[in-house]
């Protein structure tokens, strides 16, 4: 069996759904952050796959994936800083308890 574009896309979709599920259900803020990383990287896979299958001579998708990784790194830095700040205030990083912004 040859590996085609659809295999990559299915992998990407599965990873994205796992990440989304984790981001919506996990209570630990650090794990939620990790799940978001998972979603971002699943997208990276589909970008690179599209690029190499559809426009093999161009590197657009790869370059874009690297951009995403850079942004993701920055996001992790900010996200962890926020989580740390919340932990200092609440001594807890359970996402279901962080609900001060409700009605």
């Amino acid at each position: 069996m040859t590996i085609g574009l659809e295999h990559y896309l299915v992998l990407s979709a599965v990873l994205f759904c796992i990440g989304l599920y984790g981001a919506l259900t996990k209570r630990n803020a650090v794990i939620i952050l990790m799940c978001i990383e998972l979603m971002l990287n699943s997208v990276n896979i589909s970008l690179v796959a599209f690029s190499s299958y559809i426009v093999p001579l161009l590197l657009t998708g790869q370059v874009f994936a690297i951009f995403v990784m850079v942004v993701a790194a920055a996001e992790v830095a900010v996200g962890l800083a926020i989580i740390l700040a919340i932990y200092r205030g609440l001594t807890d990083i359970d996402a279901s308890n962080i609900n001060l912004m409700k009605w």
């Binding site: 981001a23 919506l24 259900t25 996402a95 279901s96 962080i98 609900n99 001060l100 409700k102 009605w103």
Partner: peptide
Amino acid sequence: RHAQTGQLQLYGL
């Protein structure tokens, strides 16, 4: 307004 639970994950859902 009671729909606004403050639960970020619910919003995400």
